[in-house]
Design a protein around this nucleic acid. Structure first.
Length: 606
RNA sequence: GGGGCCGUCGUUCAGCUAGGUUUAGGACGCCAGAUUGUCAAUCUGGAGGUCGCGGGUUCAAAUCCCGUCGGCCCCGCCA
């Protein structure tokens, strides 16, 4: 083999990576490349921790062994990029480093080449040195040098790879769908892209490849998947970014069971292969109605219990006007029993009341259950302790009861959030637990009082349960959808449905949603036509890849697992996107900005 | 659009709610020197700050007030 030394700026090929050397390599001459992670200068001897993606190896520059090389090493600083050649030796007895994978050996350098220098960094590469997120985002490449972030990038790859392998072995085809596509009504705000060639017209970035994957099914593709980038122009949260990745899949000639079964297998395999975690088989399954009435939300965190207790019967016969009134106007009364909560100080309870109000409750009734089931509460005189005890068989003296009386949606929303709040505040969550679950039997529609129309709970292409189709016209709110959600530890991991494959039924659902024939044909004409040209029954699911990695990687935010995420204001701190464009660029696109920069004035002057 | 927390040398944190003792301090990093077995190396010395920005109160503001910008968490929005 000829070694090319004349390559421009050429480096000698490295023979090993910094994480792999050990006892087996003793006495071998090796070439390593990497970054100077640390430097310990003892005068006659200099130690360098050389780092690459795989790990760290200690390099020794000894003045007695190689004077010129040692002298050169004096220039080395943090994060210099270097190449060394040297001999692998066992470390002297007593100087092994058990914290390092390569801690038994060291490389005694005979050649040093500085490939690049580095200015002092804006922040430390060490994992355990806290750094503000804006800095990490601005210098994302430095953030990636940190072992923790590096591991997360690797985890992301492993999970995607596992998913691809799993689906490949089950006859799925990975197929790309357009990023420049058509604006979809319903759902989130679209990101728009003006068309230069078609003045006044716009592409939209896909909120999901929903329609394309259905079209692929009509095309006989049978099984499709894609690591699909999706775009939604909505405000950000710790688990929400404007662009994110879904494991998107669709299958023909299947029923709900097959989708759930395949998805479960895939998720179980991913957890097993990446972290050796065993998830339950099968995942527990709850109906939408069950889960909302028990936990107040359709994505409950089941790592702790604290269920909502139904107090409706008790409330109806109580003397408390608020309770009775709620029951008489189609409302509900439910509560949370907080173990040991009777000891809470008044201002702690006041905080909970404020918390509840901020979630939309008119108030939060609280009752301390004290010795012998005496009740300590401002509303105690309206409540019969014996009947309350009957309504709450699992409650005991020492507990605190928190109740909300209101419309069912308010009761569930408030208590669901309060449950989460208490779970965190009282440290009820066991962070070693994994609690996946399916939510099934969603209602097909909700009535939106503001716009005075029915809206799809899932999306307008979801098939109603066959036995409910006759009720579509008469009682739409009773119709159940063939939709399902996968929830893990309180996060919605994904959702899907069996789709409508009949053009007539699709039209009927559009009618119900108030989407006019004309509008439907303009927006989804291609789908409606496809449904008339031999569309097979089909269905699928989409899983949030970023959320999945976030959970498996046990990170605090989705931003840690998205390589280049955006801030809460949807900006990229590294590239400083979005930014102004020139007038000429806009003109070419036939658009003009209506934005006029305003001077910062105090509010009362505006 | 709304609520909350945060912003102090390159980094991280203290000081702020008792306005003056601060010439704004510690640790890490940086620079120079010493140092042959360290791995958070050590020792000596040194440099380094528009206290996010603007305005106000005051004899005096990092500290109090108002506004504003930015980051994070949440509501709305979003599946």
């Amino acid at each position: 083999m000829i070694t090319h030394v004349s390559r421009f700026g050429g480096t000698v090929p490295r023979t090993h990576r910094c994480g792999e050397l050990g006892r087996d390599h003793i006495d071998q001459t090796v070439n390593l490349t990497g970054w100077v992670h640390g430097r310990r200068d003892h005068g006659g001897i200099i130690f360098i921790d050389l780092r690459d993606r795989q790990g760290i190896t200690q390099i020794v520059f000894d003045s007695e062994e190689d004077g010129s090389c040692h002298q050169q090493a004096d220039q080395l600083r943090h994060e210099y990029v270097i190449e060394i050649a040297g001999r692998v030796t066992l470390r002297p007895e007593g100087s092994e480093n058990p914290h390092l994978a390569t801690g038994e050996i060291e490389v005694r350098a005979t050649t040093l080449r500085i490939l690049n220098e580095s200015k002092p960094l804006p922040f430390s590469i060490e994992d355990d040195v806290h750094t503000s997120e804006p800095l990490r985002l601005k210098y994302r490449y430095l953030d990636f040098r940190r072992p923790r972030m590096n591991k997360l990038l690797e985890l992301r790859h492993q999970i995607s790879f596992q998913v691809r392998t799993f689906l490949h072995h089950r006859d799925f085809l990975e197929i790309e769908t357009p990023i420049l596509t058509k604006s979809t009504p319903e759902g989130a705000r679209d990101y728009l892209v003006p068309s230069r060639v078609n003045p006044g017209e716009f592409f939209a970035l896909p909120q999901s490849p929903q329609l394309f994957k259905q079209i692929l099914m009509v095309g006989g593709t049978d099984r499709y998947f894609q690591m699909a980038r999706c775009f939604r122009d909505e405000d950000l949260r710790l688990d929400r970014q404007p662009e994110f990745t879904q494991i998107d899949l669709e299958m023909s000639f299947i029923d709900r069971e097959e989708v759930l079964d395949l998805t479960e297998q895939m998720i179980r395999e991913v957890f097993q292969e990446t972290k050796g975690i065993d998830l339950p088989d099968p995942f527990p399954r709850y109906t939408y109605h069950e889960i909302v009435s028990r936990y107040g939300t359709d994505k409950p965190d089941l790592r702790f219990d604290l269920p909502l207790e139904d107090l409706s019967t008790f409330a109806r016969s109580s003397d408390f006007k608020v309770f009775r009134h709620a029951m008489e106007s189609d409302g509900l009364v439910k509560g949370l029993v907080v173990k040991g909560g009777a000891e809470f100080a008044r201002n702690r309870i006041d905080n909970l009341v404020e918390e509840a109000k901020s979630y939309g409750a008119k108030g939060l009734a609280w009752v301390k259950i004290i010795d012998d089931w005496k009740l300590d509460s401002v509303i105690a005189k309206f409540l019969n302790p014996i009947e309350l005890q009957r309504a709450l068989p699992q409650a005991q003296p020492g507990d605190l009861l928190l109740c909300v009386a209101d419309k069912p949606s308010v009761v569930h929303n408030v208590l669901g959030r309060l449950r989460l709040h208490l779970g965190t505040e009282l440290n009820l969550i066991n962070f070693d637990r994994w609690e996946p679950l399916w939510v099934v039997d969603f209602p097909m529609f909700e009535y939106d009082h503001e716009s005075k129309r029915y809206v799809a709970l899932h999306h307008p292409f979801t098939s109603p349960a066959p036995q409910d189709i006759p009720f579509l016209d008469s009682e739409p709110l009773k119709v159940q959808a063939q939709a399902y959600d996968l929830v893990l530890n309180g996060f919605e991991l994904g959702g899907g449905s069996i789709r409508i494959h009949s053009a007539a039924l699709q039209q009927q659902v559009f009618d119900l949603l108030g989407i006019q024939k004309e509008e439907a044909s303009k927006k989804f004409g291609f789908l409606l036509e496809a449904l008339e040209l031999g569309a097979p029954p089909h269905g699928g699911i989409a899983l949030g890849l970023d959320r999945l990695i976030m959970l498996i990687g046990k990170t605090e935010s989705i931003r840690d697992v998205i390589p280049f995420p955006k801030t809460q204001k949807a900006q990229c701190l590294m590239t400083e996107a979005p930014s102004n464009v020139s007038h000429d660029q806009l003109k070419e696109l036939h658009i003009r900005s209506t934005w006029t920069p305003t001077e910062n004035k105090p509010k009362d002057e505006l």
